[in-house]
Amino acid sequence: MAVEMLSYIEKNSPVHRLSGATKLIVFLLWSSAAMLTYDTRVLLFLFVISITIFWLSKVALRDVAFVLIFILIFLLLNNIAIYLFSPQEGVSIYGTSHVLFEIAGRYNVTLEQLFYQFNITLKYFVVIPAALLFIVTTHPSEFAASLNRIGVSYKIAYAVSLALRYIPDIQRDFRTISQAQQARGIDLSRNEKFFTRIKNAISIILPLILSSLDRIEVISNAMELRGFGKKKKRTWYSAKPFRRSDYITIFVSVIIFILSVIITFYDGSRFYNPFL
């Protein structure tokens, strides 16, 4: 069960040196911009910047390759699904129809459809580097402090930190439990009857849940004994203080965000229409 999971990658780069809170803000602005806009020019511009920053971060492509391959497969399937369900979506959005070739019935290939699907894909490509970077360049320790800084209640921020802390432990429990149950003939993947498989799943999930509930008890006690929740605020050992580069980064991102929104909605439509 050596499934790879994405996690922090230690490097010394300008991106790594930024405070986690800055990266979180940029990531949120970036995602919002990419979600709102369908303007090809804006998307292309954001995409180029994304790639540049990715390059600046010194994160090697092969470190994240397993995730990228997964995303590419997802995007391919998604594109196929869109085409199958709605081959004329582009035509109805852009209002013209430049047919390249016919396939059958309403299934033809138009420039408009290609352009529309290109834009959808581009949207993902804008967000993916930003999200990836945020995950691999922010140390988990700093994560909770960053959330708290942008206004999330410290208790909820700490819950996120707890989740990150205990994922490996829970994974180990899960592994132990499923091995013990396999020895007794319980398996999820094999060609058992469907209902048996469900029953088997419960034999593994239930011990995991019950032992995790015990864990909640122990951890709550430990935190209570060490004064968690005593005050309305708390400080963070691992928070990175804001430096000039943080302020500059946030400022630039806000400008980019505002500009992309203005350009996008300037003519009253989220789409950039090259066919008019």
Partner: peptide, 28 residues
């Protein structure tokens, strides 16, 4: 406490030692 995995709640040694100071709002 008896169970070190339950008591160790920070993501790193330093953070865990600091836990109670954080709750007391001690400056970084």
């Amino acid at each position: 406490l008896q169970d070190p995995d339950g008591q160790f709640i920070g993501l790193s040694v330093g953070e865990d030692i600091a836990f109670s100071l954080e709750n007391d709002c001690v400056e970084q």
